[in-house]
């Protein structure tokens, strides 16, 4: 091995390496393994049967359904917001950037509570919504809203630095070559951000399916109606149905693993293109 000027003594290197490996095993790997071993404690059949149980099965479908609405909407809003921020100058831009980060800095429970205070029975729009027979809190719309709020920053945060880095010149070139605004966006802006957008969507999706706090507040925990997968895990666990709880939990964990694998695979497969998108 070539020697490096920054090389520390063997003892230091060993200590640091062992410390970080121990940390990863203890705090990241062990819990993950526990989830899967607990789920399979009574064999494949039991775990599978627990997933097929009507309430669990409903929770899975509900989670997929909520993500299927929240993620595409957040992708669209995220692209729109980052486009506005990165490609235009306007008054109050710094404030908007801060606002986008809000869901990251506010506790998810508060995010959920906000919707209860606005749309709940005692909230601003509560009586009006009741009179018009519209249910938002303790129903699907509330869950979707809370999920969207919590996961909004993922796409925008991924795209803003990328788009700022790429600048406006390619768009200017497109316009000077006669392209319409739509053409410019579709043929120049969007292809340049597609990998960043994909990452953002993957992360957004993982969080949308896994969100607990905000959804917990707005859902009202009606089994088979408003319990998503993370909520179902808690319900089952509190009922001492450990196999069921961990079976659903391992499904969520699996989703996270798939997300990470997909991300790494894309990074490896399209390394050249991703590098080119950043280069100027």
């Amino acid at each position: 091995m070539p020697r490096r000027a920054t090389e520390d003594s063997l003892a230091t290197r060993l200590t640091v390496t062992i410390m970080s490996i121990a940390f990863i095993v203890l705090f990241l790997l062990m819990p993950l393994i526990t989830v899967f071993t607990q789920a399979l404690a009574q064999g494949w059949q039991a775990a599978l049967a627990a997933l097929k149980e009507p309430d669990a099965w409903y929770a899975i479908k509900l989670t997929l359904f909520v993500a299927a609405i929240a993620v595409p909407l957040n992708a669209v809003f995220g692209v729109a917001a980052s486009w506005a921020i990165a490609k235009f100058d306007f008054w109050g831009k710094g404030f908007l950037v801060t606002l986008i980060d809000l869901p990251f800095s506010v506790s998810p429970v508060i995010s959920g509570l906000v919707y209860v205070l606005i749309f709940g029975m005692a909230g601003w729009f509560g009586p009006w919504l009741r009179d018009h027979d519209i249910k938002i809190v303790f129903a699907l719309p509330g869950i979707v809203l809370a999920t969207m709020f919590v996961t909004f920053p993922f796409v925008a945060r991924e795209l803003i630095p990328l788009m700022e880095d790429q600048g406006r010149e390619e768009e200017e070139a497109a316009v000077s070559l006669g392209a319409s605004g739509f053409s410019t966006f579709w043929r120049v802006t969007l292809p340049n951000i597609k990998w960043g957008l994909l990452y953002g969507v993957l992360l957004c999706n993982a969080r949308a399916m896994g969100e607990f706090g905000a959804v917990s507040v707005v859902s009202g925990h009606i089994r088979g109606q408003t319990d998503t997968m993370p909520l179902q895990v808690e319900v089952l666990y509190n009922d001492y149905q450990f196999v069921g709880a961990f079976a659903v939990a391992s499904l969520l964990a699996l989703l996270a693993l798939v997300t990470l694998t997909l991300k790494s695979f894309l990074e490896w497969r399209y390394a050249d293109e991703i590098a080119a998108a950043h280069r100027h």
Binding site: E169, E170, E172, A173, G178, V188, N192, A276, A277, H280
Partner: peptide, 19 residues
């Protein structure tokens, strides 16, 4: 508007479409 001028503009950093 710029798109109707047919003014061929060559940018200092070229601004080629990288993809």
């Amino acid at each position: 508007p710029a798109r109707d001028r047919r003014a061929g503009f060559v940018f200092q950093q070229y601004a080629l479409f990288r993809h």
